[in-house]
Computed example of a mutant assay.
Amino acid sequence: MKFFAVLVLSLLPLWAQAAEMGERLAPWTLLDQFDQAYTLDDQAQILLVARSMDGAKLVDAALQGQPKGYLEARHGVFVADIQRMPRLIAKLFAVPAMQSYNYRVMLDRDARIAPRYPAPVDKVLWLQLKDGKLIAQHEYDNAAELRQALEQVQP
């Protein structure tokens, strides 16, 4: 039994490998802050992943003052990993606060999606996609730089 447990644990990193350049990202579905489902498809060109509250705050600061639909017009998708947040806090405070945002936040409540895209916890991971394939990857730890990068994307 110990051998089986060690074998399974040693194979876990292989199942959660990062996406490689040119690789097609596996589709997934998450609910946003309004409990509306979104499925990653070939239309997405930018995937922003925040693994912590600090990362999510960077995205929010970068999108401050932008009109509703700004991120979606750039075929951008924002995934926030909120699995470390206590469920009661998320339900009563955090998610209702997110409903005032002028952009969608795909909520990874159980860390099913965000771990597929490893990045430092305090940064925002930017995955550039074309036809569902990863073509570039960047990390941002500054809201002004993230905002500038978003402004360079043509809607």
Score class of each variant (00 low, 15 high):
44 A>R: 02
115 P>C: 05
127 L>W: 00
58 L>A: 05
69 G>M: 09
65 G>K: 14
56 A>W: 05
91 K>P: 05
88 L>K: 09
66 Q>L: 03
35 D>K: 05
86 P>A: 15
128 Q>Y: 01
79 V>S: 06
80 A>W: 08
11 L>T: 08
110 D>T: 11
67 P>G: 07
75 H>C: 03
72 E>M: 14
114 A>E: 11
33 Q>H: 10
81 D>F: 02
153 V>L: 06
140 Y>W: 03
14 L>F: 02
114 A>W: 00
121 V>E: 06
116 R>Y: 02
24 R>T: 13
136 A>W: 00
3 F>A: 12
144 A>Q: 14
21 M>Q: 04
18 A>N: 00
89 I>V: 15
4 F>R: 08
141 D>L: 11
74 R>Q: 09
104 R>Y: 01
76 G>T: 05
129 L>Y: 03
25 L>D: 04
26 A>W: 00
68 K>E: 07
150 L>P: 09
25 L>G: 06
41 D>H: 01
10 S>I: 09
25 L>V: 09
102 N>H: 13
72 E>A: 14
81 D>N: 15
123 K>L: 10
39 T>H: 01
28 W>C: 13
35 D>L: 02
120 P>A: 13
50 A>D: 15
101 Y>Q: 15
67 P>D: 11
128 Q>V: 07
96 P>D: 04
13 P>Q: 07
42 D>I: 11
135 I>T: 15
92 L>I: 01
38 Y>N: 06
97 A>D: 01
96 P>G: 05
18 A>W: 00
107 L>V: 08
7 L>N: 08
47 L>Y: 00
136 A>T: 03
